[in-house]
Design a protein around this nucleic acid. Sequence first.
DNA 1: AGCGTATTGAAACGACTGTTTCACATGTGT
DNA 2: ACACATGTGAAACAGTCGTTTCAATACGCT
Lengths: 200, 200
Amino acid sequence: MARPSVDDLSRREQLLEAIVDYVFEHGLSDLSLRPLADAVGSSPRVLLYYWGSKAELIQAIVEGVRARQLVTFASMRETYYASPREACLDAWKLMTQPKHEPLFRLFFELFGLALQDRTTYASFLHHAIEDWIVFFSRPLIDGGSSEADARAYATMLLAGFRGFMMDFCATRDRRRVERALTLWLDSVKNVEGKDSRRAR
Amino acid sequence: MARPSVDDLSRREQLLEAIVDYVFEHGLSDLSLRPLADAVGSSPRVLLYYWGSKAELIQAIVEGVRARQLVTFASMRETYYASPREACLDAWKLMTQPKHEPLFRLFFELFGLALQDRTTYASFLHHAIEDWIVFFSRPLIDGGSSEADARAYATMLLAGFRGFMMDFCATRDRRRVERALTLWLDSVKNVEGKDSRRAR
DNA sequence: AGCGTATTGAAACGACTGTTTCACATGTGT
DNA sequence: ACACATGTGAAACAGTCGTTTCAATACGCT
């Protein structure tokens, strides 16, 4: 078939999905068109036909990776918890499921590449922080905190999760890291919650 | 000159220093022998003569980067502080000096590469966590804590610093991040210190 | 039926990769 | 003075890279 069928306007998107799968498995830093094309059942010619150049394809991949992340953790946004401590523990359990390890591996790889090439990955770098600051600070802002306070608190939460996740990805030492996580949650839980006005 | 002079047994080491400089500036993920050799005033032939292959050279570079880190933050190990809070703030001030930014950029890049290629970078991955766990937990162990408790606490400290540093490197938003850092230190400071026995 | 657009395969392009070969220089030890 | 080990430059190796050229498909539309 040459022309895609009527409801298949998205041969491109469907190809991109396969490409993102491939990148989740092999990483991005030494991505090469020919092996990639073989793996997704296409050809370098077609990849360049759809995206113009490897650089633009990479932009699309990064966007695709971000979309996957959002889908994967959408449940965190939909569930409501009695206490922030419970929410954090649940988030941690979700994040550290083995099936999500490639996602975090890829995130940290992208982050490292982005720091070395800020112009190419500018949007990734922005979203890597801002998406989660917004997410974590919303309940506080809704609870009446100032935006600056809420963003500072969200920054702390994000830093904690990221730091614990780095350790866990590197060492896979769940016992030690979860012990530290508990220690951390016991320390900071009183800042958030219904009585967040205390923090002012 | 062909043969190095008598006290210059370390033409190799001196070359490696220049190479590490270059990598600090250009990153590691797309390192190439010819541009590297040009920059350090050598040739691909010589680099391979000294290190055998690019892979072994990279091992040497990673070791060199780690050595630089240790030297850079050696002062943190020598200074003693009245309170852990003060020590953390001082460490943060040191870490976030602009001249140290390349070091953290490179660290995060290496970390990302290491997660995607655990066998090549196994030693880096180990040291990236263990070196600092040992460093942070020593005062607690000396103070009488159990090793597991001390390592859990050190894990939390390390995670915090790493997370804040990720944010700071990505956004350079010192005001927000330091606000979060303060929030964090105010929450967790009571765990460490002379009365660390309370944490048992 | 036939034109035009969308898509694709095969092959080649020049540039670059890590590595090797060969030659040559320079120093030390005998 | 000669042999030998250490170090280095120039060039070539085979392979891979992203990209382009040329050609050929197959489909929708008039």
